[in-house]
Write a protein that binds this DNA or RNA. Sequence first.
DNA 1: CTCCACATGTAAAAGGTTACATGATTAG
DNA 2: CTAATCATGTAACCTTTTACATGTGGAG
Lengths: 194, 194
Amino acid sequence: MADDLPPTAWAVLGLLSFPGERTGYELKKWADASLRFFYWSPAISQIYAELRRLESLGYVTSLHSGAEEPRAKRTYAITEEGRGALAVWAGGGQGLGAPVLKHPVLLRVWLGHLAAPEHLRGLVTEHVARTKGELKEVRDALGRADGVEAWAHPQIALRWSERRLAAEVELAEAMLDDLDAVPGQPPGNSPTQG
Amino acid sequence: MADDLPPTAWAVLGLLSFPGERTGYELKKWADASLRFFYWSPAISQIYAELRRLESLGYVTSLHSGAEEPRAKRTYAITEEGRGALAVWAGGGQGLGAPVLKHPVLLRVWLGHLAAPEHLRGLVTEHVARTKGELKEVRDALGRADGVEAWAHPQIALRWSERRLAAEVELAEAMLDDLDAVPGQPPGNSPTQG
DNA sequence: CTCCACATGTAAAAGGTTACATGATTAG
DNA sequence: CTAATCATGTAACCTTTTACATGTGGAG
């Protein structure tokens, strides 16, 4: 049992562990709509590559709708072996690494001594707006998953993501206050609310 | 002006934009102690590689303490050109991508239908403990940066990280409750507090 | 008729990690 | 004396992205 696949492979296999069969293209959309909020969405070309690898391991099977269907596509399904391997992987995982966060906005704030204060505020404000948009996306996804028994756990992950994004907004707003309190800086365009 | 360096290169250059000169080895420790909380710490071998690239671009200079010092080491300093390029990079950044989060624990929770409920609880509990440890590390780093005027912005990034980790603990605890509420599951080993 | 979504894949390049190799200094 | 820390680097390998190439079907 090849147990040392990269997390991405398990994520793709995981996508197929829920009821139904899907194409690589569909998998990418699923990943964009939910996986990405807590574990990033691979490029479509990588999804195809992972699917081929998983198939070569016997963890998935594919069916090519060749002559029958007008539009040719390859539909993937998880095998029993794949489900077993995935369960073994899911059952392990003690001593997991810490979550990795790559936050471009924080990277710039960290280097704030090199930028104009208003510019920094602008980046953070933009980030807040974007995050609120993502919050809406998560809520939509949550709405779609609601009530479906097989999706109890994805739903928990989504609920976590929802709270996480709400926290991200609060974090950014608190940072805005910290930014305003940096000494040696003109009062700037931010009204000292109160 | 080669403006299309990967964020990692800017992060390493950024490390050198604070007062003082340092070796690649020291840079790695700095990254482990602060950068990693909001933007991951590159492998030491990659730091050396980035330093060589930055030097070839004229963004940093190095001094090899050859025959003089007993222990040979190469000390890096940012150049004016490097500082300029970094400032340009820091001054841009509108339309930044969303932060990328890779959360191994969430990935397993998402696949919770394949694992034993107690196992899931164990992973999350372990994650809470680890996060609390990181919280302590951030507070230590914050203590070291405290009062140093040149570090106002790194301090803001650290403060953000502190709040973020505190939020992470709360998020995980809320998820534990969600996990207990999954239907079709034995009451388990978690006492229904109340 | 044109644009967008569907659908799949290849190839090159970049990014990044791990393992390996080496050696001095310091703390216990 | 021994282990850990300091210190640097190479090479192989894997992961992942980007750009490219191709073609169908439906909506406006």
